[in-house]
Design a protein around this nucleic acid. Structure first.
Length: 584
RNA sequence: GCGUCCAUAGCUCAGCUGGAUAGAGCAUCGGCCUUCUAAGCCGAGGGUCAGAGGUUCGAAUCCUCUUGGACGUACCA
């Protein structure tokens, strides 16, 4: 389609040149000045060329110019033009465009839509980054969905992508659940209690907060435990290892259930010390300074901010210390061209400071770091608050969605056709969840309404799956009846109705959508595109009989178009982590 | 206080680097299953794109201000 566009720009430029010549006007570099747009309605044409920019040259109204150009162009092969007010609209030759497109999609198959936009670029994407004191919640699911999707999109755009996770397994908050476990745990384990490890640990974190309300030494005890941990106290370390293991196992199970994976895990417990060394080096080099209160700080007055603590006065690390160490370790492990941190918008300040600190330390690659800041997931009543117990748990929401999907399968009497109801239910749940989370632009806050968001109808993930399942079912029937269509050929000149042409245009625009999503780091571009395409197919499917078209060449041709649509849906599903279903 | 971001239909969201009559879904109302899965299709109503200026041939989109909201401004992460 890009070629087609370029070809048309040439044609229009030619027409403009001729029209200008007739009037003795000099237009300069015409091709660069031509704007290509999509007409608002399909019946107005396929490409639109506004003539406004040339009004001054011609010293006349745009509609007049459009008329002159149309006249100058006369008849030609690639299609036709029509003037619509100030616009010159082009109608492409549907048959020949369709033929090329269907061939491309078929030969490229699962690679259709991939590009070379980011060829040769090494990109590291950090996302998820859970704490090991509680299970994942809905906010993490948004983070995971964005991180995983962005990684896949960048890869599709040609980049070499490394997905990394940073486990926040160190700090007072971790000690809190450990302390509560020591006091109230009674030796419980995930096995003995039958509770998933991360949830079990989370229970003790909640318990700590209750206890600390009654006992005001609780916080101090947690601090003391952190000191013991830093000093390598054997008993504390042992408990820490056990409980971290429980949480990480539990969280990994959630990742597995959501189709999320990582190439490398980093652990804060392993990077915070190198961060500390780095800060001390920075103190020597003069990048940082020692404040009168004993802490080591970074002066931010050059970027109009205050100062920031890099290392506490007692020598222990803060979040920043650790992130400094991690970033440096990462660049050594994988000399990236870009490192994308998928982290909530509330940490924008943190990353501004982190990047600045790295630059001050002399790391030139600090310019390659990028904070992909995303908005919060809120409830209709407002923020999720753990203290008020309104946090939506990741496993709970998945289980609930899966249950609803299974009920739906049974209610529609599809259990037998589907085969494994549990598995299909789980995949439908994932589609609902991921589509819901990714259809929204990342940087915006979003509202999750438990009652209304868990829908499988309308503009949802399951709708997309449903379309692909119907396609598969139809294609299966086509194969089964292959004898009837013996000798039929694809004749793209038969695929020129408006419904078919609309689908062609959508299929052809998929590669551009992938590039846009990659350039903007925005999965919602793909999500919205998939819905538009599924919707257009649904309309076509309803209006145009395929197997019963009455003409075997027409059937064969529509099957070819349908296969192309299916391919694009499949490829797109993969980018936004929506499981493909051939039956539902 | 200062900084960053957000504001589009009753609700949840799209709207490409400014372009032709601002779009979906949900909800409401009305049609369509003897025909490829009704998790579907078609139609109706519903908008001062928060408000006011500005730039431009043209602004939901860019700039300024105002209002409302979120987040940040920790020796928490």
């Amino acid at each position: 389609m890009d070629n087609v566009k370029r070809q048309w720009i040439k044609i229009i430029a030619d027409g403009l040149a001729k029209a200008a010549e007739g009037k003795g006007i000099e237009l300069g570099n015409i091709e660069e000045r031509i704007i290509v747009e999509r007409p608002p309605r399909a019946d107005m044409g396929d490409l639109a060329f506004p003539m406004f920019p040339f009004a001054k040259d011609f010293r006349g109204a745009p509609p007049m110019i459009a008329g002159l150009v149309a006249e100058a162009l006369g008849e030609f092969k690639a299609g036709s033009v029509k003037t619509v007010g100030p616009y010159l609209n082009a109608f492409l030759d549907r048959g020949s465009v369709a033929a090329d497109l269907l061939k491309d999609v078929e030969t490229e198959a699962e690679k259709y839509g991939e590009s070379e936009l980011l060829n040769g670029q090494k990109i590291m994407v950090e996302f998820s980054c859970p704490n090991t004191n509680k299970p994942l919640h809905l906010g993490h699911l948004r983070n995971d969905a964005i991180g995983e999707s962005i990684s896949r999109i960048l890869k599709a755009a040609g980049a070499e992508v490394k997905k990394v996770n940073l486990i926040n397994n160190r700090g007072v908050h971790i000690c809190k659940s450990m302390l509560a476990y020591q006091k109230f745990g009674e030796g419980k384990t995930p096995e003995s209690s039958g509770i998933k490890g991360d949830h079990l640990v989370g229970e003790f974190y909640v318990k700590f907060n209750q206890w600390s309300k009654e006992d005001d030494t609780a916080e101090a005890q947690a601090q003391e435990m952190l000191r013991q941990w830093e000093n390598g106290d054997e008993k504390v370390r042992k408990l820490w290892e056990i409980m971290n293991g429980w949480t990480i196992d539990g969280i990994n199970e959630t990742y597995k259930n959501t189709g999320i994976s990582f190439d490398t895990y980093y652990y804060e417990s392993e990077t915070y010390l190198s961060g500390r060394d780095e800060v001390l080096r920075g103190l020597e080099s003069g990048a940082f300074y020692k404040d009168e209160d004993g802490s080591i700080r970074l002066d931010l007055s050059d970027i109009k901010m205050d100062t920031k603590v890099m290392l506490r006065s007692d020598g222990t690390s803060v979040y920043m210390t650790q992130d400094l160490g991690t970033a440096i370790a990462r660049h050594e492990d994988y000399p990236f061209d870009r490192l994308i941190y998928v982290v909530g918008a509330e940490q924008e300040y943190h990353f501004k400071v982190l990047f600045h600190a790295l630059k001050k330390l002399g790391y030139t690659w600090a310019d390659m770091l990028y904070h992909l800041s995303y908005g919060m997931v809120n409830l209709p009543e407002g923020k999720m608050k753990s203290r008020e117990g309104t946090v939506v748990d990741a496993d709970d929401i998945l289980a609930k969605l899966t249950e609803m999907a299974k009920e739906e399968i049974i209610a529609k009497d599809r259990a037998e056709a589907v085969g494994d109801v549990d598995e299909t239910g789980g995949k439908i749940a994932l589609a609902a969840l991921h589509y819901f989370l990714l259809q929204v632009s990342p940087y915006k806050d979003m509202i999750f309404n438990p009652k209304e968001s868990l829908s499988f109808n309308g503009n949802t993930g399951p709708y997309l799956q449903y379309m692909s399942a119907r396609i598969c079912s139809m294609l299966e029937k086509y194969e089964a009846r292959s004898a009837e269509f013996e000798g039929a050929v694809v004749d793209s000149s038969l695929l020129v109705s408006d419904a078919e042409w609309e689908l062609m245009k959508l299929v052809s625009s998929y590669p551009a959508q992938v590039n846009q999503a990659a350039a903007e780091l925005n999965p919602s571009v793909i999500a919205v595109y998939l819905y538009d395409t599924a919707k257009a197919f649904s309309r076509f499917y309803h209006d145009c009989p395929i197997l019963g078209s009455g003409d075997k060449n027409l059937t064969c041709s529509r099957v070819a178009l349908t296969k192309a649509v299916l391919q694009v849906l499949k490829n797109g599903f993969n980018l936004v982590n929506i499981p493909f279903l051939s039956k539902m």
